Amino acid sequence: MDTPRTTYAMTENKPGSKVSAEIAAALAASSMVFYGFDRRYPKLLLRRASRDELIWAAAWLHKATKANYYWNYVTQNIHSLDSVFAEFGWDAKHAGINILPSKFVLDSSLFRPNANKFVCSVLPEPPTKSVTYSSRSVCYIIK
């Protein structure tokens, strides 16, 4: 990357949730603009407006507060994510969104299958290897 990568800090007066909310709003508004021209692109924009970072935040807020509002947000929006399960990074929280709730809702088939797929994808010699790992990798299958 040959462009400057400016660093910004979040503070109490400048929280990061505003940025996520602004992006979600822009994507939702854009979906309305493109609706008359293309049927697929607006749907993609709306899926992206329900950003994985917001679901990730709601999962952690539920874990910390036990407030049903956050849990409802997670379960109502988990289906808006792409079916990518083996990705966790700065711009994709899919794996974490499945792993974290699966720890406190062990009887849920909503999160457990993708959580297991992710864990198994990082194992040595899995059928669907997609990441590199150290020699000390350990797998915990959620049962």
Rank of each mutant, 00 (worst) to 15 (best):
R51D: 10
F118R: 02
S83H: 10
N114V: 00
T7G: 11
Y133H: 13
T132A: 11
M10G: 11
H62L: 05
K129Q: 07
A95S: 05
T7V: 13
D82L: 06
N77K: 10
S109A: 00
W56E: 08
S20Q: 10
S83Q: 13
D82K: 08
G36C: 05
A92F: 02
K18A: 15
W71T: 09
V19L: 15
N68P: 09
R51K: 07
A86F: 09
L110R: 14
H94L: 00
Q76R: 14
G36R: 14
T3W: 11
G96S: 00
V138S: 09
L110C: 11
A92D: 11
P101C: 05
E53Q: 09
L123T: 00
K43W: 10
D38G: 04
R47W: 01
L61A: 05
Y35D: 10
R47S: 10
N13L: 05
S121Y: 12
F88M: 07
N98P: 13
N114A: 11
S31C: 01
A57V: 10
K66N: 07
S80Q: 13
S50Q: 07
T11P: 15
S121D: 04
A24T: 05
S31R: 03
K18H: 08
S17K: 12
N98F: 13
K14C: 13
F88R: 02
V19Y: 14
I78C: 01
K66D: 02
Y69A: 14
N98L: 03
